[in-house]
Amino acid sequence: MKDIAVTEPLLRVEGLSKSYGRRIGCENVGFDLWPGEVMGIVGESGSGKTTLLNCLAGHLAPDTGRVLFDTDAGMVDTVTMSEPARRMLGRTDWAFVHQHAQDGLRMNVSAGGNVGERLMAVGARHYRDIREKAVDWLDRVEIAEDRMDDRPTAFSGGMRQRLQIARNLVTGPRLVFMDEPTGGLDVSVQARLLDLLRGLVREMGLSAIIVTHDLAVVRLLADRLMVMKSGQVVETGLTDQVLDDPQHGYTQLLVSSVLQV
């Protein structure tokens, strides 16, 4: 089986903990993420899932633990790597999709400029090439070419989120962190976004870690699931297995609390 032949995971997390004074953010989290896998992290607000995501993505410094990423130089701990190297990773191999598009976009820069920024950040200096790539990516997220010189302030919520995704994926990252990517969007817009994400994940062979409280989203997007409660991981497994045959009391409560997913 071809993928099993890969011997190193893309991301290996070991003993990751982060507390805010006496309050626990997340505690002793560990897992492997393999190339092409999409992992969902679910839990209620305050369960530590966003803290965990921020620690993984290098936005927060964890108190203990390692976040090893598969680089050209083998598995490297991104927690202890130099800040320039980590920031470089953040605009090449990694991408981060924020819940609120305005946090991940430059609202005073055109859609094309938003997509082009990551290219220019890694040294692209040919205007027409940058523009061509931006057009291609806007098309892939279903934003018409004639909107590329408009600012995101003129876009709907769904369009902004799609623009944020284009901006993140244009440099061909290998790992995408997503924080409630469909939160705050209309149901119909959510569906469109989910479809888009699924297609992109498959076509680009992306790995992704998606934080959400929406079990329907992970059901459709995630291969695997991690359930968090009070900063602890209480259950992990295949998405459909965790949702259909939850083992932990909290997961059972979570699953039974939502309308049929």
């Binding site: 089986m1 993928d3 099993i4 896998e37 119909s188 569906a191």
Partner: peptide, 24 residues
Amino acid sequence: PREILALRREVLGYVSQFLRVVPR
């Protein structure tokens, strides 16, 4: 999980009574 995912992708098919797909 990843072994099961690979198994489902390549070896083991399942036709359930319910259709579960991304709308649209």
